[in-house]
Computed example of a mutant assay.
Amino acid sequence: MRAQPLPGARLIRDWNGHRYVVDVVENRFVMDGKPYRSLTAIALKITGAKWSGPRFFGL
């Protein structure tokens, strides 16, 4: 079982010269003020490719 980040956590990932900041809130993630249901959806948005969201963020 993989550990999930707790609400209040902040995930930071540098990708292609840009820093992405994701806030963990109850039952979702927020990046640039937009809510996402999963880290995988955020990784897809950032990279344009299918990634494991937790792996992309180093969890």
Rank of each mutant, 00 (worst) to 15 (best):
Q4C: 10
Q4H: 13
P5W: 05
L6N: 14
L6Q: 15
P7Q: 11
R10D: 00
R10V: 15
L11P: 07
L11D: 04
I12N: 03
I12D: 03
R13T: 03
D14I: 11
W15I: 04
W15G: 07
W15K: 11
N16V: 05
N16K: 15
N16R: 15
G17Q: 09
G17M: 09
H18P: 01
H18N: 13
R19H: 07
Y20V: 00
V22C: 08
V22F: 09
D23A: 12
V24Y: 03
V24C: 13
V25G: 06
N27M: 07
N27G: 06
N27F: 07
R28A: 13
R28L: 05
R28H: 15
F29T: 04
V30P: 06
M31H: 08
D32P: 01
D32H: 12
D32L: 09
G33F: 04
K34I: 11
P35C: 02
Y36D: 01
Y36M: 04
R37Q: 12
S38E: 02
S38I: 05
L39N: 07
L39P: 10
T40N: 10
A41Y: 02
A41K: 13
I42D: 06
I46R: 07
I46L: 05
G48W: 01
G48I: 01
G48L: 02
G48V: 00
G48P: 06
G48N: 08
A49I: 05
K50A: 12
W51K: 11
S52Q: 08
G53S: 07
R55Q: 10
R55K: 14
R55G: 03
F57V: 00
F57W: 01
F57M: 00
F57I: 01
G58I: 01
L59P: 01
